[in-house]
Design a protein around this nucleic acid. Structure first.
Length: 937
RNA sequence: GCUCGAGUGGUGGAAUUGGUAGACACGUUGGACUUAAAAUCCAAUGACCAUUGCGGUCGUGCGGGUUCAAGUCCCGCCUCGAGUACCA
């Protein structure tokens, strides 16, 4: 009877399901521990071996923590709203719900096969009404809140209204779209209801506004900044242009500083924190206002270098700047209009691809320098972005390279204000100890002093003030898509009105067509029962719209990140119908202790979810304002694609080593047609696709060797390895251990099935240890000291390595241990029993089976993790030379527990040793666990 | 351009954070068992020299430095990967 993994794994998976072994309770005397994976989008392609990497790691840790006596919450669910199901629906007419359900079933089957210890009783799906009801509910809260800078927190909008009623918008310190108009309490009460609502919309954290958005014509929807990579859409790689549209947005900008500060309190990877810091993009500087010559109004600029204010020789406005039309002189009108038109036509990608081309046009207008009153020409240039700062810059060519290039190109004068700097070839951009000159009251000052001095002066004059700018922009929240959460809003007289919380969920309506309407409205425009009867508080057919009691509902849906921004809280209390999570549950579980997922979500999900957490914290609905204490980014498992080389224009395929000198094209072939020595199954290729039917081959030594390239694992690249196959052939435990053995968790690494035999034979060897002579048999005699030493070394190493998430080295330790025990012919219970428990987090099925064979009938999951006993480790030691009294050197026998420096210290402080050392140079000092045992020589 | 991160055998990767570099595994070679294959087990495996002496020399991308001791720390380069990109 060999190691029958298929039988064992089936048995224990059934056992776990039947007994709900991994169901977590919201009450326990044990300390809690919450281990979370980023939930998957259930795609039609199913899981490949790359997907479970993070799940395996988190599962190992979750199981380990259970053994260590924690009440562990380890849930799983599906981020089931999303584009692919909708795209599929457009093509086939099948409802995304059906596709999603099918895919989820498939995912569940695959996940179960791998033996994860998920608590499935808490499963959630973002596309299910009992879940998205609460996503919509959070939207209502955001709509009903504003950000108070004084309290530095979100507050109910009714507080803002009462402030308006008492003082107008005086003495208000709130985050708002634009602050141009002021009004008094009397003004406020005289405003129409609509006008009041319009004003409030400028403060709400979820707000509707006309904004410049990233529009992707191919996808027919707007995209958030993080959904655009290199100027094209993340999904599909389609071009993106700018467009003005009325859209819902989330005022995440209000939280910029807190999102930045919060990073210092959480244990997340440094690189990921750095990415979020860059994305938030804090810069400290000043706003400066320039009057316009012969014109009303001012141009406000943001600068990080107010110290260079006297170096200004021109100003540049973004082509989209509001003042462009107003100030342009008659002579320049035509040129300016042409330039503005041309830059509006350019797609984001075009604009990015030729950043080196300098373009711009003079408006004919002049601004007045706030300190010298000198006229400064106003230019337009597309190197100034409308969306950052004020959309206008004061140009200081001597201190900024872009201003310098622009000035050189258009022959604008350059004024040097840096003492001793050479600006004949490029701008002088260092800020440090260089003195400023030719700058009135700033002369002789250096960067820092000049900054302070000029800001003080500007503030005194009222022409500017010190300020902080963030790159982070408010997040567009509307998507012109079908398969997403409906935004619970209807429109009355053109203004949005939210549904009441008790009217949620607002169920996604049925539509005939998943495409946009012929008029260009989002897909929900196709719904025929999509109007809100405000009197009876229910959804009714569109034909009943009368604009007095029945109103049209919002046609946009929420973006993909809505549902994923709070799901980790829902797991704590997944079935609650009264609240998004109960207070008791969230008080008990608090936050995620360990969160595992990919770093590709750095500036998307991982930022938005922190924002929502902080918001819900502000409303006192959650006890902590950072939801994940520790985050680990698992590295991607890459595929190894195979290529054949076809001689151009022929059906002749040349083996890799012979392609030199021929013009060949490399074609991807399915990796199942290639064996572990990279040799191609030529008959298989001919039958694989019709294009290879007539193939002839140029071989070397009778074989065709393919080329290899490591790239992302994907169905379209024919390099996918399926976990089901691996489980079938080697078992889930081998798969789990091998995925961990491949390399460090955080690192990207290519999958290579060839190496799996090492891990597989490890498990077989382990099995044989308990089954000498083919049958199960364990001795109750006392194990040899040697075997106990092997065991305890392994316990120590494995425990430390699990704590450090260094799972690959854990497996190595296990292998060493098994090899040693095999050589020692160890068969004693006092070694084999703890060994089974030690293995349980990794090879859970096998460990459970061995545990049962050892004579225990309950699940191993509750058994305490073994503890190592230092007494077994004493003899492991190494010799190192150590210096003493400067010159003297001798060899020291070093125990595992001490570092040479500590030993030196011990020797120095030990009187007896000092005496023994008098006048001699010992060969060896033996130190064990802090005590000097012997001095030799 | 800027910001991170990484360079160790034929390959994936170890190295107690300054302490005998190459653990463990794959691969390769040789051997045992077998009619044979598979499976399993044993041995060798960084390079070069010596292998009728149990040894020696060089070795962690390159060049310097600190130290009794450097893959690890410091300075200067090179290469690769990730993110970001006219952010004023």
């Amino acid at each position: 009877m060999g190691y029958n993994f298929l039988e064992i794994e089936k048995k224990w998976q059934d056992y776990w399901a039947r007994n709900q072994t991994f169901k977590a309770e919201n009450k326990s005397t044990l300390p809690k521990y919450y281990v979370l994976d980023m939930f998957p989008y259930p795609s039609g392609a199913g899981l490949h071996v790359g997907h479970p990497l993070g799940y395996i790691a988190s599962d190992i840790y979750a199981r380990y923590k259970r053994h260590k006596g924690f009440n562990v919450l380890h849930p799983q669910g599906y981020d089931s709203f999303g584009l692919p199901a909708e795209q599929y629906a457009i093509q086939t007419g099948q409802h995304p719900n059906i596709t999603t359900q099918t895919n989820i079933n498939r995912y569940r089957e695959q996940l179960d096969r791998m033996g994860f210890s998920f608590d499935w009783s808490r499963e959630i799906r973002t596309s299910q009404a009992d879940y998205y009801k609460w996503t919509q509910w959070i939207f209502l809260l955001l709509f009903d809140s504003y950000y108070c800078k004084k309290a530095n927190a979100a507050q109910p909008i009714k507080d803002l209204i009462s402030h308006f009623e008492q003082k107008g918008n005086q003495d208000l310190n709130a985050v708002c779209d634009e602050n141009s108009t002021t009004f008094t309490a009397t003004d406020w009460s005289s405003f129409s209801v609509n006008k009041q609502q319009e004003i409030l919309l400028m403060y709400r954290l979820a707000y509707l506004s006309e904004t410049e958005v990233n529009w992707c014509p191919e996808l027919g929807t707007v995209l958030a900044n993080d959904e655009i990579i290199n100027g094209v859409s993340e999904r599909g790689g389609f071009p993106v242009t700018k467009k003005k549209m009325k859209q819902w947005s989330m005022r995440i900008g209000a939280y910029a500083e807190r999102l930045l500060q919060g990073l210092n309190t959480i244990d997340w990877p440094g690189s990921l924190k750095e990415m979020q810091r860059n994305w938030i993009g804090k810069s400290i500087g000043a706003n400066v206002r320039f009057e316009i010559q012969n014109h009303e109004g001012t141009i406000e600029v943001f600068t990080t270098r107010p110290d260079t204010l006297f170096g200004v020789t021109f100003m540049t406005l973004a082509p989209e700047h509001d003042l462009v039309e107003v100030i342009t002189t008659a002579e320049q009108k035509e040129a300016v209009a042409a330039y503005v038109e041309a830059s509006a036509q350019r797609s984001e990608r075009d604009r990015m691809s030729d950043v080196k081309t300098i373009s711009g046009v003079f408006t004919g207008a002049f601004a007045l320098h706030p300190l010298t009153q000198e006229p400064v020409p106003i230019w337009i240039g597309d190197y100034v972005l409308a969306g950052y700062g004020t959309g206008a810059v004061m140009a200081v060519p001597c201190g900024d390279q872009r201003d310098y290039d622009f000035a050189k190109h258009f022959n604008i004068p350059i004024r040097n204000i840096f003492e001793g700097a050479d600006i004949s070839k490029e701008a002088f951009t260092e800020k440090g100890k260089t003195q400023i000159t030719d700058s009135d009251f700033l002369n002789g000052l250096v960067y820092k002093e000049a900054m302070a001095s000029v800001i003080e002066r500007l503030e005194k004059d009222g022409s500017g003030e010190g300020t902080i700018n963030y790159r982070l922009r408010d997040a567009i929240f509307s998507r012109q898509r079908y398969w997403g959460e409906p935004i619970p809003v209807y429109y009355k007289e053109g203004l949005p009105v939210c549904l009441k919380p008790e009217n949620l969920p607002l169920i996604l309506p049925e539509v005939e067509q998943y495409l946009p309407t012929p008029e260009g409205a989002p897909p929900l425009g196709n719904a025929t029962i999509w109007a809100w009867d405000a009197a009876n508080e229910k959804v009714v057919p569109n034909t009943e719209i009368n604009d007095t009691t029945v109103f049209p509902l919002e046609l946009n849906t929420m973006p993909g990140w809505a549902g994923s921004s709070w799901y980790f809280n829902r797991y704590m209390d997944a079935d609650n119908t009264e609240a998004f999570v109960s207070k008791e549950a969230v008080d008990y579980w608090q936050e995620v202790d360990l969160y595992l997922g990919g770093s590709e979500h750095a500036t998307g999900h991982l930022l938005y979810s922190r924002f929502w957490q902080k918001f819900l914290f502000d409303l006192n609905l959650l006890p902590v304002d950072e939801y994940a204490k520790k985050l680990i980014n698992q590295g991607m498992i890459l595929g190894s694609s195979a290529f054949v080389y076809r001689k151009k224009g022929t059906q002749e395929y040349i083996t890799k080593s012979r392609i030199e000198g021929f013009e060949v094209e490399a074609i991807r072939v399915d990796i199942s047609l290639v064996n572990s020595s990279d040799e191609l199954d030529m008959e298989g290729l001919k039958n694989w696709q019709s294009q290879f039917k007539e193939a002839t081959f140029v071989l070397e030594d009778g074989v065709y060797v393919v080329g290899r390239e490591v790239e992302k694992m994907s169905k379209s690249k024919y390099n996918v390895v399926n976990p089901d196959q691996i489980c079938e052939q080697y078992g889930a435990d081998t798969l789990r251990m091998y995925e961990m053995f491949l390399g460090p968790l955080e690192q990207a690494k290519p999958w290579n099935t060839a190496g799996i035999s090492g891990v597989y034979s490890f498990l077989k060897k382990l099995w044989r240890l308990y089954h000498p002579n083919e049958t199960f048999s364990v001795s109750d005699k006392k194990a040899s000291k040697e075997s106990l030493k092997s065991l305890h070394q392994t316990i120590k190493k494995v425990t430390e390595d699990i704590e450090n998430f260094s799972f690959n080295t854990c497996i190595s330790s296990f292998m060493i241990c098994i090899n040693e025990l095999t050589v020692q012919k160890c068969n004693e219970r006092d070694v084999l029993e703890p060994l089974a428990i030690l293995l349980a987090p990794f090879a859970s099925h096998t460990a459970e089976e061995l545990w049962e064979l050892l004579g225990y009938d309950s699940s191993i999951s509750t058994v305490a993790f073994p503890i190592h006993e230092p007494s077994y480790l004493i003899e492991s030691s190494k010799n190192y030379p150590v210096s003493f009294n400067g010159k003297m050197r001798f060899t020291i026998e070093l125990s595992l527990e001490l570092k040479p420096k500590e030993i030196e210290e011990i020797i120095m402080n030990d009187d007896r040793t000092q005496q023994q050392l008098q006048g001699r140079t010992p060969k060896k000092v033996i130190v064990v666990t802090g005590k000097i045992i012997n001095i030799v020589g």
